[in-house]
Design a protein around this nucleic acid. Sequence first.
DNA 1: AAAAGATTGTGAAACTTTTCCCAATCAAAG
DNA 2: CTTTGATTGGGAAAAGTTTCACAATCTTTT
Lengths: 213, 213
Amino acid sequence: MSQSSNKKKIPKNTITRLSLYLRELTRLEQEGKKAISSSELAELTDLTDTQVRKDLSYFGQFGISGTGYEVSPLKEEIKNILGKGKVLDVILIGAGNLGSALLSYSGFKIQGFNIKAAFDIDTRKIGQKIADVPIHDIEKIQDFLKKEKLKIAILAVSAFSAQKITDTLVNCGIKYILNFAPLILKVPDDVMVSNVDLSRELEIFSYFIKSSE
Amino acid sequence: MSQSSNKKKIPKNTITRLSLYLRELTRLEQEGKKAISSSELAELTDLTDTQVRKDLSYFGQFGISGTGYEVSPLKEEIKNILGKGKVLDVILIGAGNLGSALLSYSGFKIQGFNIKAAFDIDTRKIGQKIADVPIHDIEKIQDFLKKEKLKIAILAVSAFSAQKITDTLVNCGIKYILNFAPLILKVPDDVMVSNVDLSRELEIFSYFIKSSE
DNA sequence: AAAAGATTGTGAAACTTTTCCCAATCAAAG
DNA sequence: CTTTGATTGGGAAAAGTTTCACAATCTTTT
């Protein structure tokens, strides 16, 4: 991705942590809390106060010396930084076990992501709906993306078919892929892939168990 | 003095990448490939040749100058480093949408992880089986863990109940938690938590979309 | 109105991870 | 058996990230 920047370089994990701050601030706002210090926010997110302040400092000065940060305004700032002003439409490829669970997962909608349509190869699923999302024939992806200019796809298909589908998606203008298939997708430089590999997470535990024995 | 610990510190991501190498090597072995160079392996994993060599060098010298690495032996070495000699039993808490999908997900078993039992609060599910895994009353976790000495739990419950269940798990000797609930779990220092937050992944995309506009 | 107390924002230092680079090594060819 | 070519392993440099430390700033107290 093109890192257009005359500003300071922002660590990758800062973005991940902003997301964490946003979650806590949203909760705090609901609980009626007005202000919070960096050390309180750090306590809630298992980070350090310096880390919180440094992360925020990449984007501006939001705090008040002696008091801390006002919850609501800071929440809005972070929402803005993360581009969460409007609902983002995404498509889901693969309505199997995992895909179906993702369709039913309310978290996406709560967080402002709308699964506009799902696609599958299974004729028994095509035409049906899961959690109000229609499941289309996977052959129709191209037609669909020609009309709807979406940029994000969630890929919940087998490792076997993932690369072929990815090529199609990239061809149709998809720029961001959340990939659940256990393989490294080959994409052009201007396409961003984030991998969620469930077995890998356990494998890391396995290493630490081994190391502690 | 003289605590001469010769162990170099191993970067956290090195372990994650080992897992990646293992996946590719397993595939390559099946395809009958005998040897591979660091640059070929890098190509397959979207990394650099130096990175591959450096990662492996933390654990020993497995390569042959001029030739590269022998696929099968290297695969075995990494399996060993990751402690994947034997099947690891885990438990799953929460048999809702996501939990059910995880129970049906064949990847865990393929990778040597066995979901020994699932636990839920829903009386309609208790006593049933999903993908051959019995679902027990969540109240029985303590009894179960007293008999079965497992160390890993997968937590697929709501954010609301996650901390309370975590406290119970930690009390019963669980040391590794793969957490799908969108919150930061508070655990003692000797317990390791890995978070999978699906909305957060999309949020990161959202940031980059915003930045590129 | 001044002093005491709390907390931010940020350069600089410390630490971590990745990348560079090349001597050493091994295989294959001449 | 010597040269050529390929490739590793790892020290050192570079790049990236986190932590430290403290002046500046705002609030509260006296």
